[in-house]
Design a protein around this nucleic acid. Structure first.
Length: 270
DNA sequence: CCGACAACCTGACGGC
DNA sequence: TGCCGTCAGGTTGTCG
């Protein structure tokens, strides 16, 4: 489930294999995922040395010494397989290092994509120019939320899923954070007190940090050959738990908003 | 301004 | 066994 924590642990896993490595083989296995794979990707990346990996929102970035940065997005079902025993149907991009390590970008649904940008201009990459701050970064705080949510009639759930407000949250962690903060998902974003928005900021930071920590300590990394859920799924308070108890003692409910499931507790979320 | 919905895809799972 | 409906982590655009 690639939301911010999964991309973070994925990038950490890739870093241990790729950072400083030479890309001896770069092989797209098909012409497109959600969007076309750049036709010159193989030519531009093959033989390059990886100089660093980072994450922005739900995007991973792999920089090279040629001034190119490979950007990837995992969509709904994407993941990197590390040293797979064989290349499978949905392995769409293969990377091999000079040390013989193998990485395969696997994405059955192909909602993900890869792209190539000049490293000195990655911030100008279109998706990034419209994006809100990193939820774990210094620019995301209660004062900022108060400012951008003022007057908004949109539900707080839809608002937090809007990457222009804050970048990296998805359906799972929005449900979890709203439950932790005791805020009903349907509440109008502009009608939440500054005090409760401060609790929401804390909740978002806490749930993301805990998920990253679980990925880092128990999963080690999200990039691995199998497709098991990360350990953090065991810690879900409401997501996927319809009919089961909320930590407050209430019962978790499910509703559908804009075609997506929302899990929440009527007793403690107002 | 806001919510609903479709589209892009494949796979897993439950019911019969 | 198998068929069918439903659902799934994201994003973007359109419509009313």
């Amino acid at each position: 489930m690639p939301e911010l924590p999964e991309v973070e642990t994925t990038v950490a896993g890739l870093r241990s294999v790729l950072d400083g490595a030479v890309l001896s083989r770069v092989e797209p296995r098909r012409a497109d995922l959600r969007f076309p794979i750049p036709v010159d990707l193989r030519q531009r990346m093959t033989g390059a040395t990886v100089t660093g990996l980072t994450r922005r929102a739900k995007y991973g970035l792999i920089g090279t010494d040629r001034g190119d940065t490979l950007i990837f997005h995992l969509g709904m079902s994407g993941r990197w397989r590390v040293d797979p025993s064989e290349i499978g149907t949905h392995d769409h991009l293969i990377l091999e290092t000079g040390a013989g390590r193998l990485l395969a970008l696997n994405d059955p649904r192909r909602f993900g994509f890869v792209d190539l940008v000049r490293s000195d201009a990655w911030e100008a990459y279109t998706p990034f120019t419209r994006m809100g701050p990193e939820p774990l970064g210094p620019d995301f705080d209660a004062a900022m939320l108060v400012r951008v949510l003022a007057g908004k009639g949109t539900s707080i759930k839809a608002t937090l899923l809007d990457q222009r407000i804050v970048a990296g949250l998805g359906n799972i962690y929005v449900c979890e954070a709203l439950n932790m903060a005791g805020i009903a998902p349907t509440r109008a974003a502009g009608r939440i007190s500054a005090r409760r928005l401060a609790l929401l900021v804390d909740a978002i930071r806490a749930v993301l940090s805990a998920a990253i920590a679980a990925g880092g300590s128990t999963l080690r990394d999200y990039a691995r050959p199998d497709g098991e859920l990360g350990y953090f799924s065991k810690q879900w308070r409401v997501y996927g738990r319809e009919g089961l108890p909320c930590p407050c003692g209430g019962t978790v409910r499910r509703r559908v908003d804009g075609g997506r499931s929302t899990f929440f507790c009527q007793q403690c979320q107002r």
